[in-house]
C-alpha cells in the first residue's frame, strides 16, 4: 500500500493547487503522480477519490470541461 506520508503530501499539494486555480481531473491526476508515482492505476484512482471526498471541491464547466476548485 502507498506510504501515507506521500498521500498526505499529495493531498496538501492538490488542495493548494485547487485553491489557486480550477483543475480538470487530468490536471489533478498529474499533480498527484508527481508525489505518488509508484501506485497502480486502481490505487491511484482509489486514493484520489478519497482525497477529493475529503477536500469536497466545487465544480464548474470551463471550455466544455469539468473543473474542480476550492
Amino acid at each position: 500500500t502507498p506510504s501515507s506520508s506521500n498521500i498526505q503530501l499529495a493531498e496538501k499539494v492538490i488542495q493548494r493547487s485547487l485553491m489557486r486555480r480550477p483543475m480538470t481531473t487530468k490536471d489533478i491526476l498529474k499533480k498527484f503522480q508527481t508525489k505518488c508515482p509508484g501506485l497502480s492505476k486502481e490505487q491511484t484512482i482509489e486514493v484520489l477519490q478519497q482525497i477529493m471526498k475529503r477536500l469536497k471541491p466545487e465544480r464548474k464547466v470551463m471550455n466544455d470541461k469539468m473543473h474542480f476548485y476550492l
Partner: peptide
C-alpha cells in the same frame, strides 16, 4: 503515456460524478 492519463482521468471523473 497521456492516453493512459486520459483513461485514468475519465475513470476518476466517473467516480467523482457519483458523489460530488
Amino acid at each position: 503515456s497521456s492516453s493512459e492519463a486520459d483513461e485514468m482521468a475519465a475513470a476518476l471523473e466517473a467516480e467523482l460524478n457519483d458523489f460530488i
